[in-house]
Amino acid sequence: MEILNISSELATFLFVAALFAGFLDTLAGGGGLITLPALMMAGVPPMGALATNKLQASMGTATSALMMLRHGRVKWKVVNCLIIVAFIGAVVGALLVQIINTDMLEVIIPVALCITGIYFLLTPTKNEENKQPKLSSVSYQKYIVPAIGVYDGILGPGTGSFFTLAGRVCRAQTFLQATATAKILNCATNIGSLFVFLFFGQILWSIGIIMMVGQSVGAWIASHCLFRISIIYLRILVVIMCTAMLIRYVSH
């Protein structure tokens, strides 16, 4: 897509939406719940909105991922292979969305969001370290991570929450470990999808660049808050975002 001129009011609206989304996405996931509707309200067609959303979301997740790695919250040797398969999965998903009917997601996504929200609402926070992984690291890398990557390439909202849930359930990660790792993997899936949308030329650059700045600022602020906020409050925020996304999909 070509670069378009936009009003200062619209630019401000999209910047603030992206900033808020970057903040929430870093803490709990679900930033797409804010940015995709904002792009649609700005008059961007569906495929353009999806592509531009990937551009701006990539900056937010890259910022938070860099902070996680820089401060040692996630070890590179633990996630390097996961990053590759997440990236590949997202590329496959972004290619599929160009040719397939995505109506089935209207059923799958609400169910997945409901399960995620209920899990974080009901599971206890004590004795997190004592749980045993339900899936081997090899199976997790071969099936779960690329599957979530494919979903992110096709649509995206809730990907961070799904990665967090997968880390908790499949690999017995603590809540903070799962959340921090989710930022790295979500960054990989966003970039993988972005490459495909760049190839097809579907990005609206004028809007995307403005939102990239907002995402970066929001993610930077949230990255400094993530390990200072009580786990209870983070879990509540995840449940709220999952519920909000669920309501949106059901009402849509």
Rank of each mutant, 00 (worst) to 15 (best):
L55N: 05
A57I: 02
V44T: 08
G60N: 08
N80E: 09
A28K: 05
N53H: 06
L50G: 00
M67E: 11
V74L: 06
A28V: 13
A49K: 09
S64F: 02
L66R: 12
H71P: 00
A57D: 02
T52P: 07
I83V: 15
K54C: 12
S64Q: 04
S64P: 04
V85R: 00
G32W: 06
N53C: 04
T52E: 09
V79R: 04
P45S: 14
L82G: 07
A42T: 05
P46Q: 06
M67L: 12
G31L: 06
M68P: 00
I83C: 09
L27G: 11
I84A: 12
L50Y: 01
I34E: 14
I34A: 13
T63A: 11
M59H: 01
A65T: 14
L69E: 06
V79P: 03
C81D: 13
C81L: 14
T35A: 03
M59A: 15
T35G: 03
T61F: 02
M41H: 13
A38L: 08
G29S: 13
P45Y: 09
M41F: 15
N53I: 03
T63N: 04
K77A: 05
L82I: 04
V78I: 14
I83F: 12
D25N: 15
I83P: 00
G31R: 06
L55W: 01
A51Q: 07
M40Q: 14
S64C: 03
G30N: 07
A28G: 14
Q56E: 12
C81Q: 13
M59F: 15
A51N: 07
L69Q: 04
R73C: 08
G32T: 11
P46Y: 02
W76L: 15
M67H: 14
L82S: 06
A49W: 08
D25M: 05
K54Y: 10
T26P: 04
A49G: 15
K75V: 10
V85Y: 00
D25S: 14
A42V: 04
A38K: 06
G29D: 13
M68R: 11
Q56D: 10
L39W: 03
V79H: 04
S58L: 11
N80A: 07
A28Q: 11
T61K: 12
S58Q: 10
T35W: 01
L69N: 05
L50T: 09
L66T: 15
Q56I: 10
P45N: 13
V78N: 11
A49N: 12
L33I: 12
L33C: 04
K75E: 15
P46G: 05
G31C: 10
N53Y: 01
A62T: 11
L50Q: 03
G72R: 08
M41D: 10
M41Q: 15
